[in-house]
Nucleic acid binder design. Structure first.
Ligand code: SF4
Ligand code: SF4
Lengths: 128, 128
DNA sequence: CTATTATGGACATATAAAGTCTTTTATTGG
DNA sequence: CCAATAAAAGACTTTATATGTCCATAATAG
C-alpha cells in the first residue's frame, strides 16, 4: 500500500501554485518540467483537480492553472481524495456486518489519518 | 491506495486463530475454506506471518498454525507490517530534504494511522 | 485567423497483486 | 522405518492498476 505518484505530483503542483503570484496562471509545461514528469500525464492529473474544484484552468495563450479563490481552505485530504478517490482503504469482503470488529479498527485508524490530513492546509506551508 | 486482500486474509486468519483452543494447530485448508481463498495462496501469506514471528507452524500430520506464546501483544500494525512491509506510504521523489514541508505532513499523518493500529490488539477483539 | 494551451479518448507499457502448479522438506502416527 | 499429512519454496500465469504516450478536439488571447 503506497500513495501513487499521481498524488505526489498533485501535492507538489498545489504547492507550486500556492507560491505563485495570485491569478497568474501557470502552464502544465512549466509545472511538469519542475517535477520531471511528462506534461501530458501531469495534465490528466490536473484535470482531476479541476473537476474536483481544487484549481481553475484557462485554455488558450497565456492560459494555465490557478488555485480556486478560497484556496486557503484546501487541505491535504482534499487533494488526495481528488486524485485517489474517496473510498475506504479497507475493503471488507462480506457485506457490512455492522458489529464487525476488524472493520471497526481499520476504519477508526483510517479516520485518524484523515483527520490529520484534513487539518493540514497547503496555505500553512506557504506561510513560511 | 488500498490495503491488499492479503492483509485482509492475514487479519481474519489471526482472528480465527485467536478464537481457537490454544496450542491446537489449525491447518491452512480449514482457514482457506472459511475465507473462500485458495489454500496455496493463503499459505504464502501465512508463511510471511511465520517469518515475522507472529505465528508458529508445525508440519506433518495434525500440524498447522498456532499463535505465538505472547500473542496477546500482537497489534494490528504488527500484522499489517508483516504482510505489506514496513516502508512508508509516501515515497519522496528527491532525496531527503530534511526541511521538506510536504513530507513532514504526510509522515505525521501516517504516524497517526500507525499509532491507532499499534494500540489495537487482536486479543481485545476476542475478549467479547 | 493563428498561435497557444487545456481536454479527451484511445492506446501502450510497466509494475504489482492475486492466484496456480509442482516439488521439496518436515513431522506424526502406526 | 514407512506412509500419510501438512507446511515451505519456487516457477509460473493471470489480472488489475498505475503510469505514460499519441493524437485529435475545444477554448481563448492577441
Ligand atoms: S469479519 Fe468484518 S471485515 Fe471480515 S468479512 Fe466480516 S464484516 Fe468484513
Ligand atoms: S518537496 Fe519534499 S516531498 Fe517533494 S521532492 Fe522535495 S523532499 Fe520530496
Amino acid at each position: 500500500m503506497k500513495y501513487s505518484k499521481a498524488t505526489n505530483y498533485a501535492l507538489h503542483t498545489m504547492l507550486f501554485l500556492a507560491k505563485q503570484i495570485p491569478n497568474k496562471p501557470m502552464g502544465v509545461q512549466q509545472l511538469a518540467e519542475m517535477q520531471n514528469v511528462s506534461p501530458t500525464y501531469l495534465s490528466k492529473i490536473l484535470t482531476k483537480l479541476v473537476k474536483e474544484g481544487m484549481i481553475n484552468s484557462v485554455s488558450g495563450a497565456n492560459g494555465g492553472y490557478t488555485l480556486r479563490h478560497d484556496w486557503e481552505d484546501i487541505s491535504f485530504l482534499d487533494i488526495i481524495h481528488a486524485v485517489e478517490g474517496k473510498s475506504s482503504l479497507f475493503d471488507c469482503c462480506l457485506y457490512n456486518d455492522p458489529k464487525c470488529v476488524i472493520k471497526e479498527v481499520m476504519l477508526s485508524a483510517e479516520e485518524k489519518l484523515e483527520n490529520e490530513l484534513r487539518n493540514r492546509k497547503i496555505s500553512d506551508l506557504v506561510k513560511k
